[in-house]
Structures are given as C-alpha cells and as structure tokens.
C-alpha cells in the first residue's frame, strides 16, 4: 500500500516536471513579452531594465531552474497584462471555478447514478426510455448551446434567474464563496447545470450499462438464490460492483469539468479561472497561460491519485498482499 502510494507520487512528480517543461517553453516561443508590456514610447533602457527584472537575460536552463523553484513555492511570475503576481490572480479566480465544478460534479453524481440504477433495473419502463431519450440530447448538444438556451428560457423569457456573473459572495477570509446565500445559488444554478448535463448523461449511461452487465453475473443469481432482499442485491451487491468504472470515468470527468469550464464561464461571464485563461490568451499573457497549464496538470494528477486510492477502498482484490489460487 505504502509502496504503491510512493510509486504513484513519484510518477506524479515526473508528470509535473514534464508539464512544467512544456509550459516553460511557451515563454521561449510565443513572442517577446516586453513589447506587449511597455508602451510605444518606451526607451531601450526601459526595455532592458524590464527585461532584466523579468529575468529574461539568463540562460535557458537557469531560467527553467528559476521557473521550477518558483513554481514549487507557488510563484508563477508577474502577469504581463495586469502587472500583478499570477498566483494572486489565480487565487482570486479559483474559488469561483472550484465551486462551479464542485456543484456540477455533485449534480452529475447525485442525479446521474440514481438515474443509471433506475434505468438499469427497469429497462423497459417508460420512465427509463424517457431518461435515455433526454440523455441523447445531453450528450449531443454542445455545452454553449445548452447554456445559451437556458439563458433564453430562464433568464430572458421567464426572468427567474440572473443570466451572468457571480453574486451573493461571502468572504471567508481565504475563500470567497457564493454557496452560502440564495442569491449566490441563483447565479450558480444555470452554469452548473449547463456544465453538469453532459457528465450527468454520461454517468447515467455508464451506470446503466454496468448495472445490466453486473445483474447478469453468477454472484447476483446466487445472491437471489440466497433470498437476499432486492434492496441489498441492487444497491449492495450490484451497485458496488459498478463503482470501479464509474470512479474512473468520474475522475477523468472532474478533470475535464475543470478544463471545459472555460466555455461555460464564457457563456455565463463567470469570473473563474477559465475566463482568466481566455483573457490571458488574447493578450499573450504567457505567465497566466503557463501557470494555468501547470495548475490543470496538477489537478489531473491529484484526481488520478485519488481515483487510484478509491479503487483500493472499493476493490479488495487490489489491496490483498498475497493472491490466492484464483484463475
């Protein structure tokens, strides 16, 4: 168990190092930042001074070493556009994105899993067929279309929900949350739904397929022959066996929720990291871009590590030290 964690941590460090290298090379290839930062009338001396201050005169390996050292300490340099440290910008924006992703991931899980179980158990009921048909819409419509349609329906026609931005924010010191006020929820509900819809249908279909598979197995037949109650069979024996693939996909999906929140954040003008990243691209704000890249990689690595540990919790075959005379 410990050896496994150490091994995974080592892999994670290697991955992060490679990502850092890639995001560092962005600095080398995407234009000269100094031109973007100083005005038209800046003198050569001013340019050189800035160049020196930004550390652009060092040799490349030295720059990379600096970059990694700083990144490890959570420093990603100054934003070319804002002239502020990138970590401050990200720290401002991160709560918005994290809350959006958390709310939509929970929605996807808490609605998707029960729907999947229901459609797996009652394959031919009208409700199941309805769920499956609707889920086709969720899978095939692009996120921004759903977002815009929702704005049209709930924001413009019905006027129930605000159409943009984040409201009702409460400052908790290190974290600004919008989940503690009704107004905050009225702002988050549409973007979160938009973001969750695809994941929800994916999870529902995955759970359904896995349930159908598991319900055919011998151990479910044997559980029935032992006279266990349906609830114990469906939720204890069957659902638990569907969890390993669901955890895998959910882990990957939380990663892509973070990454794809860019689109939803743009549609709803949600002040999150995605919006920051897009603005960074428009201004060739390389420190913002590269630190976003590193941060996303870090999230993926952490999620994957969590997923691996969850496997251990769910499946005893992975945690036993000695393997019996099985197959």
């Amino acid at each position: 168990m410990l050896a496994f964690i150490v091994q995974r941590l080592f892999q994670a460090i290697v991955v992060m190092f490679v990502v850092a290298l890639i995001s560092f090379t962005m600095f080398q290839f995407v234009g000269d930042p100094v031109n973007n930062m100083v005005g038209q009338e800046a003198t050569t001396e001013q340019r050189d001074a800035l160049r020196e201050r930004l550390g652009l005169n060092d040799t490349i390996p030295v720059q990379f070493a600096h970059y990694v050292m700083n990144a490890v300490q959570g420093e990603f340099g100054l934003s070319y556009r804002m002239g502020k440290p990138v970590q401050e910008l990200i720290a401002e924006r991160m709560p918005a994105t994290m809350e959006l992703v958390a709310v939509s991931a929970l929605m996807a899980l808490l609605i998707g899993v029960p729907m999947g179980v229901y459609t797996g158990l009652h394959r031919n009921s009208w409700l199941s067929r309805g769920f499956l048909t609707i889920s086709l819409v969720g899978i095939s419509l692009p996120t921004f279309v759903i977002g815009i349609l929702m704005i049209l329906a709930f924001g413009v026609w019905l006027g129930w929900l605000p159409t943009f931005g984040r409201g009702g924010v409460v400052d908790l010191g290190v974290w600004k949350t919008s989940l503690m006020t009704a107004q905050g929820w009225s702002h988050i509900i549409m973007p979160a739904t938009t973001l969750a819809l695809f994941q929800l249908t994916l999870i529902m279909r995955l759970v359904r397929a896995e349930m159908l598979e598991v319900l055919r197995t011998d151990y479910i037949k044997f559980a029935r022959a032992r006279g266990l109650r349906d609830r114990a069979i469906n939720y204890g024996h069957a659902l638990k066996n569907t969890l390993v693939p669901v955890i895998t996909i959910m882990g990957l999906q939380i990663g892509s929720l973070l990454a794809f929140s860019i689109i939803t954040e743009t549609v709803f003008a949600w002040p999150g990291m995605g919006l920051l990243f897009l603005q960074g691209i428009q201004f060739v704000d390389i420190p913002v871009m590269s630190s976003y890249l590193v941060l996303m990689a870090l999230f993926f690595v952490i999620i994957n590590l969590t997923v691996d540990l969850l496997y251990y919790a769910v499946d005893p075959r992975l945690r036993s030290e000695h393997v019996g005379a099985g197959h």
Binding site: Y219, K221, N241, G326, H327
Partner: peptide, 12 residues
C-alpha cells in the same frame, strides 16, 4: 451453482 469462482461477490 456450478462455478464457485463466479458465485461469490468479489467485493465482500
């Protein structure tokens, strides 16, 4: 049942 390898739930 016939196959003891698959008759028991692997997770319990």
């Amino acid at each position: 049942f016939q196959d003891p390898l698959t008759s028991l739930n692997p997770l319990y």
